[in-house]
Amino acid sequence: MNAYRVTEHRKRWIILAFLTIAIACLLSPWASPHPDGLERVAEDHGFLEKGTVVNELAVIPDYEVAGIPWTAVRIGLAGGIGILVMAVVLFGLTRSLTRSGGGRHEQRTDEWERIDRI
């Protein structure tokens, strides 16, 4: 039995990942400027100004990288950093999950091979 593996198409996945990151970084500065979620509710009920203190431990406060003079670059870079952080976390999580369950999958393929031979 032939099993489909993502690693067989590794080059395509890498190209798609880079394209996704590039498009997200280039388009994120033009995201909607209108507030969403809690920020919108705070604006509607008049308590938005009470939440102006930025957490000093925030890595990327207000979704912008500090120290860069161009707004589009600050926002795009923040989006790219967010994508990369999530990719690393998800890669680590899926890698740890597949390592712990690898033995069960190998045993299952051996059973299918025996059935094919019969």
Score class of each variant (00 low, 15 high):
R74F: 09
M1C: 05
G82K: 01
V59Y: 11
E39T: 06
D36H: 13
S32I: 03
A58H: 02
V73S: 04
M86D: 07
P33C: 08
T94I: 01
R104N: 01
M86N: 13
T71M: 14
G37I: 05
E113H: 09
I21G: 08
I83H: 11
R117Y: 09
H9W: 04
P61F: 10
D116S: 04
A17H: 12
D116M: 06
V85R: 02
Y4N: 08
H9P: 10
I14Y: 11
E64V: 10
F47A: 00
T71G: 12
K11D: 15
A22Q: 06
M86Y: 10
R95C: 10
V89Y: 14
A66W: 15
R117W: 09
T98S: 12
I75M: 12
R99D: 01
N2W: 06
E49Y: 09
P35D: 07
K11E: 14
L84W: 07
A22Y: 10
A22F: 13
P29C: 05
T7F: 13
R12P: 04
K50C: 00
A87Q: 09
E64A: 15
D44K: 04
V65Q: 02
T71N: 10
L27C: 12
H34F: 15
E64D: 10
T94G: 07
P61W: 06
I23H: 06
T20I: 11
S32P: 07
P35I: 00
V41L: 09
R95T: 14
C25P: 12
L27W: 08
K11P: 03
